[in-house]
Design a protein around this nucleic acid. Structure first.
Lengths: 124, 124
DNA sequence: GATTACAGTCTACACTTGTAGATTCAATTT
DNA sequence: AAATTGAATCTACAAGTGTAGACTGTAATC
């Protein structure tokens, strides 16, 4: 089962998102609190962190008795890369196809449309 | 490991894409030929098909000595759904964020941009 | 009818992922 | 110092995935 070098599973991504959003090192407990929605047991989060450390997607630093975790991969880069893969897998690599599909399926809010129009107007 | 009811793995998706693109029932061999790029052994494809039949993502019909497979789930619906999840996981559910990111990261070709502009102009 | 091919089925296996209880070890409190 | 507490680590396990060799049975060919 060959996989891409740096992989972040769905569960791990939830943690990465918390870390990225926070912008600073967090303990497993803090992440757990932020993720109160999901009711993961502490040890589940700990396992995920330990796997992430192994994979190298986060690093930690020990302060007192706590480990503070920091993402070691760049959010923008990672997401851009994943988006590219996604478009490649589902939309034959065509951004146009993706956007057309979003359009058709009415997944865009009025604000989305406005904002996007602005983007494109700046462009001309 | 609880997963969404109807799941299509990455490998399975490649097959589904072939089936969807073809628009008509295909044998495992035909799919294999179409997928010559990946060099999957025949039995790999057969295993994938058999799992897909189990999951209910394809059905087959026996004609002579061959099985002809047909997707049993709708491409548009499936992709729309997956796209929604994707945006939810990576872009906090915001289509605008996605499109902005595509913009920034220069993943759009000139044609993409033209086509997309057309879409949005129709809209006003 | 015997032989050959080849499509489909079985079996296999290592790695991944989600999920978490049990255990350990150091810090904190009494 | 002893007891308590709570992180971090270890161990565990079932289901899912990628990948494919071995086997079987029937259709096509000699």
């Amino acid at each position: 089962m060959k996989r891409d070098k740096i992989s972040i599973t769905e569960a791990e991504l939830e943690i990465m998102n918390v870390l990225w959003a926070s912008g600073e090192p967090m303990t497993a407990q803090q992440v757990s609190d932020t993720l109160h929605g999901k009711d993961w047991k502490y040890s589940t989060i700990a396992t995920l962190f330990s796997r992430m450390v192994d994979k190298g997607t986060v690093t930690y630093e020990k302060r007192g008795r706590f480990f503070y975790y920091t993402p070691s991969i760049n959010e923008k880069e990672y997401k851009t890369h994943e988006t590219k893969n996604f478009i490649s897998n589902l939309y034959n690599g065509s951004v146009k196809n993706l956007v057309a599909s979003l359009f058709e399926s009415k997944q865009m809010s009025a604000e989305d449309i406005d904002e996007i129009k602005k983007l494109f107007e700046l462009e001309e």
